[in-house]
Design a protein around this nucleic acid. Structure first.
Lengths: 257, 257
DNA sequence: CGTATCCTTGATTCGCTTCAACATTAGTGG
DNA sequence: CCACTAATGTTGAAGCGAATCAAGGATACG
């Protein structure tokens, strides 16, 4: 609660303020009145800058706060004893990081910036206190946690029952949809992660990801130039996700007949 | 709040009561005082019996409550358009079902009883109201949601970077640990799910699951008789999860050399 | 301009799936 | 009680999709 004035003046002198943030439609304060957002300003007191490749937090770090991405993007991952990496998610502006730490007071994954980024620090004790007072904040927070659970179930679906190209198609469509929600082009964007990181997330090797990109390109679904992606035929990608739909010439659609 | 005086002596038959439940060490009321548990009794007002193979809820059902498993066990799953099933989890006594519904007011998966079961119905609006009053309840609920997120990340790890036998070993050890927490044997238990359901959960075909069971049996790690499992060598199973440890005779550990 | 990182593509290998046959168990009704 | 059936589980053989191994190309960076 105490507003500590350690170096707020140096680079940009940004006073953190949800009420003046253009991300309230995506972030924690969704559905709150202006008055309520002013109250949130009390608990979102600081920002943190994270340089590319640096950790926002690591496995085992003591949990005290969750983070809302103000700018930039992150990946979360877990490492096995023998060094294998599993990327568990990619996060972009307005999305919340750190929910994994609540259950054990210790973070269960690493959060690493994919580019120079900035996050709003939300002290969790303060958030719990305020959400006992503001019903809509409480509910919004519960929604965010639940949506994370549902997202994770979608990833299980992807990893457990989809083939390589289905996974990549689902991934691209998901990115496109999230860029759209942020006012960016649905059809043209820059990947912030490497093929290896995409592969880790999708349970594939980087070569397989690369080959799938090339194949999509051959079929005219996308243009690929390194990390620059342009979706030319979103429907073509969607058709990949429904393997036995009418895009198979040998398969007569019987359900509509 | 008023301390209601329905004393523990007055053993009213079917009245649901957290305060008289032996699962409070596993369930929602973990860490609550007796007085606080009495307050929870207000919101956990009903039970529901679910017969084997029946749904507790389905995708698209309107969300109003979460459920705590009083007895029995469940699976949760998602179906793709083309009929493929992805099991997203197996739940046993004391575990909470329905958290997937909070985010969109609609359930995102199916919950199906693996045996005749009974759940406590926790109206969610009531839970939110009460957790605005009881700090420890609020925190416990947040912990449960967070632990679900961490669990899901573990499944991602499993599906994304483990091979078939690693997955099954991890699955068996996880079951063993959960049975132990419930006072059952760590080394001997009955599977409540079919090979196909295990396979779906682990991203494998049922034949692969069956073969992995047989292989574990050959190696003396387990005894298998249909759904009855006895773990003979838990360390053997654990070693499967660390592939490049010293259990491989051909592999000279170079990192220490 | 040279080096490191990232990406692409080809050839080969391997693990899991698919297909198939049969075994076991449980439930049903004569 | 046993024959019958359906569901479930085991095992073998063949095929396929992704991993692995390997080489070269593109791009960013100091």
């Amino acid at each position: 609660m105490q507003v500590n004035d350690d170096s707020p003046t140096n680079d940009t002198a940004l006073k953190v303020s949800c009420s003046q943030c253009n991300l309230t439609g995506l972030c924690l304060p969704v559905g709150l009145s202006n008055q309520e957002i002013n109250l949130i300003d009390q608990i979102v007191s600081t920002r943190r800058r994270i340089k590319r490749q640096q950790n926002l937090y690591r496995v085992g770090d003591h949990f005290t706060a969750i983070f809302s991405i103000r700018s930039g993007s992150f990946k979360t991952d877990i490492l096995t004893e023998d060094g294998r990496e599993q990327v568990t998610g990619f996060q972009m502006t307005g999305e919340i990081l750190g929910l994994d730490g609540i259950g054990s007071a210790t973070h269960a994954c690493n959060a690493i910036a994919l580019e120079d980024s900035e996050v709003c620090v939300i002290n969790f004790k303060d958030l719990e206190r305020l959400s006992r007072e503001i019903e809509s904040l409480q509910h919004q927070f519960h929604k965010i946690m639940s949506q994370e659970i549902v997202r994770d179930q979608g990833v299980m679906m992807l990893l457990g029952s989809m083939r390589a190209e289905e996974r990549l198609a689902a991934f691209l469509l998901n990115l496109s949809q999230r860029f759209t929600a942020r006012g960016f082009s649905a059809s043209e964007f820059h990947l912030r992660m490497t093929r290896e990181e995409i592969g880790s997330y999708l349970g594939l090797k980087l070569e397989t990801v690369s080959r799938a990109f090339s194949h999509f390109h051959e079929n005219g679904y996308i243009q690929v130039q390194q990390k620059h992606i342009r979706i030319l035929d979103a429907q073509g990608l969607k058709n990949i996700l429904q393997p036995n739909e009418n895009d198979d010439p040998d398969c007569v659609t019987k359900k509509t007949a």
